[in-house]
Amino acid sequence: MEKVFELKAGSEVLPGLRKELRPLLAQGGWDERLSAQILLAVDEALTNVIRHAYDWNPGKIKLVFRDDSDQTEIVIEDQGVRFDPTSVPPPTLPREKPGGLGVHFIRSIMDELVYDKDFRDGNRLHMIKRKIK
């Protein structure tokens, strides 16, 4: 199953997107706890696009949700400036300063995080969560 979302780069799109992804994650067999975690990883990735790739300026984001019997994959594409979250060093925890945890959250939740270095029109990030059988 695959579904494509075309989004505006703004924080106001996040609640509506979560609402649309919840039933898709449930269909994919994810329980409420893991579904909430995957939504959190998606939110953090989109937040990075809005803040870093677009620097709060208007822009477009394409999100592809792909689910099969082995895994759920979410691909996020933007046309902003290059920002590779996989190059962000892990924070020292607990971090008692505000911020700097988004990429740590994505890494903690997802099994695989791949930044497509060959994508030249902006950024393309693949986030994969495997299903344990």
Binding site: L40, E44, T47, R95, E96, P98, G99, L101, G102, F105
Partner: peptide
Amino acid sequence: DYMDSSGIATFVEAFQ
């Protein structure tokens, strides 16, 4: 029922 890292950052700032 839902919170992301910006929520955590808000609490960390207020706590400090």
